[in-house]
């Protein structure tokens, strides 16, 4: 099982996304690399503007002008997502990599029945299934996410927030993708519903053996949900590691401040940020983008940009490897 789980589902290398404005390029994502292992749940956290949602959208190839994917690779099985043609990418969406969107409340077409919206996703990718077969398939999907199959006949405004979220989930797994990106999927729901929706998501994920990237800013939710956590700051991944160790012994000073700013009880709740302002992405400071706010900055921090390097390694499995982009952790200290 351990060996199997170390298989890489999606490998992201040096992803860069810039928004080209009249005042210059906004570097929303600047050189992000990580491996998503098969079947794992990877969290991406960061303040708003840190590039976590942009990273997710770039993997779906949904960046719109003036934004542009400047460089990078995203290897998903045989597919390199960033070099597919538009039509190939269209076919890959939801068949190989799917998305549970951030604003699921408004993401369903208000004038179409729920079932039709599940069905048209399937029809966009597969020839033929129609009529009774399609109805059965939609029913199965709704049951899978613990909704009554009759929900197919309802319009979005007739559903509660939690039910809409489950519909979004049903659509995201309809074509059995290897990777599911969930972009703050529960931020609009109350805590009780949140928990139950996430439980369903992970049960479904397990049945499909898909890998999940969970994007969000609720550290408490992350702590409960994911296997590994990536922390983003100013468009860069600054720390990546197993969630337990990362929260207990953060490597990067930013992560440390983030964790210590959490309410202590069970570390639950949203983080409220840390002193100082995030840097301008239009004109980032030289060196490490965090150095102006960093209490532990040393000489090199103002000039050299630290790369994401392995701090704690394990030969057997990438699962417990710990990486950080900080000059305080140059080299491997086993």
């Amino acid at each position: 099982m351990t060996g199997n789980r170390s298989r890489v589902a999606l490998s992201v290398e040096d992803l860069r996304v810039h928004y080209h404005t009249e005042r210059g390029a906004i570097r929303a994502v600047e050189g992000v690399s990580f491996d998503l292992l098969a079947g794992e749940r990877l969290g991406l956290v960061g303040e708003s503007g840190s590039g976590k949602t942009t990273t997710a959208m770039a993997l779906m190839r949904l960046i719109r002008p003036p934004g542009r994917i400047e460089s990078g690779r995203a290897q998903l099985g045989d597919l390199e997502l960033l070099s597919l043609s538009d039509e190939q990418m269209r076919q890959a969406r939801f068949a190989h990599i799917s998305l549970i969107p951030q604003g699921v409340m408004n993401s369903l077409n208000p004038v179409m029945r729920v079932g039709a919206q599940i069905a048209d996703t399937i029809q966009a990718h597969e020839q033929g299934p129609g009529g009774e077969k399609m109805r059965a398939r939609v029913s199965d999907l709704l049951s899978l996410v613990e909704l009554d199959p009759d929900t197919a006949q309802m319009y979005p405004h007739e559903l509660s927030g939690g039910m809409k979220q489950r519909v979004g989930m049903a659509i995201s797994v309809a074509l059995r993708p290897q990777v599911i990106i969930a972009d703050e999927p529960t931020s609009a729901l109350d805590v009780v519903v949140q928990k139950r929706v996430m439980d369903t998501l992970f049960r479904v994920q397990g049945e499909l053996d898909a890998a999940v990237i969970l994007v969000g800013h609720d550290m408490g939710l992350m702590a409960q949900c994911v296997d590994r956590l990536g922390v983003m700051y100013a468009g860069r991944l600054v720390e990546l590691g197993p969630v337990q160790q990362l929260l207990e012994q953060p490597l990067h000073p930013y992560t440390r401040l983030l964790v210590s700013s959490l309410p202590s009880l069970d570390r639950r709740g949203e983080f409220r940020g840390i002193p100082g302002l995030p840097p301008s992405l239009l004109d980032p400071p030289a060196g490490c983008p965090f150095h102006p706010r960093c209490p532990e900055a040393i000489d090199g921090c103002t000039t050299k940009i630290p790369g994401l390097t392995t701090v704690v390694a394990d030969d057997d499995s990438a699962r417990i490897e710990r990486r950080a982009a900080c000059h305080l952790h140059t080299g491997v200290t086993s």
Partner: peptide, 14 residues
């Protein structure tokens, strides 16, 4: 600009 149009595109609809 509505979410449901973006989501429809994200789903790989033609």
């Amino acid at each position: 600009g509505e979410d449901y149009v973006n989501y429809a595109e994200a789903r790989g609809l033609k």
